[in-house]
Simulated assay, not measured.
Amino acid sequence: MNKAKMVLQNTGMRKDNQQFDDIVKIVESAKDRAYRKVNEELILMYQEVGKYISEKSKEAA
């Protein structure tokens, strides 16, 4: 294989790798946002459960 053809192939591979890396970054970013949203909902649930338990314990007293 001649040198020019090797350079062209390597350039194409770098471009493909960069595109793949960009897609991986998009997916990882979406996963991070999803984790944050789930954690936010868990915190709200814990607050609601705590409020409920607090109110019921006041009623019982």
Results as ranks from 00 to 15, higher is better:
K51H: 14
A30Y: 04
Q47W: 05
N2T: 12
D22C: 02
V7S: 07
F20D: 08
D22G: 07
K5R: 09
V49D: 01
I26L: 06
V27N: 01
S54T: 09
N10E: 05
G50K: 15
A60T: 08
M1G: 11
K51N: 11
V49P: 06
A4M: 02
K56T: 09
S54P: 02
Y46V: 11
V27T: 13
Q19E: 14
N10T: 11
G50P: 06
K51T: 15
K5G: 03
K3T: 12
N10C: 04
E55L: 15
Q19N: 14
S29W: 03
Q9L: 04
R33N: 12
A61M: 13
Q18Y: 04
E48R: 10
N10H: 08
Q9T: 10
E55D: 12
K51R: 15
Y46W: 06
D21I: 12
M1Y: 08
L44T: 01
T11Q: 12
G12M: 00
G50M: 07
I43Q: 13
Y52S: 13
D22V: 08
G12T: 03
L8E: 06
K3M: 13
Q9S: 12
Y46N: 12
I23Y: 06
R33V: 06
L8N: 00
N10F: 10
A34N: 07
L44Y: 11
G50A: 08
R36N: 01
Q18K: 10
E48N: 13
M13W: 02
D22W: 00
G12Q: 10
M6I: 13
N39P: 00
T11N: 05
V49I: 14
V49Q: 15
V7P: 00
K25F: 03
D32T: 12
V38F: 10
Q18F: 07
E41N: 09
E41T: 09
V24G: 08
A60L: 15
V27W: 01
I53A: 14
Q9M: 11
T11K: 04
V27L: 11
N39K: 09
N17A: 03
G50E: 13
E28N: 05
V27Y: 05
Q19F: 06
N2E: 12
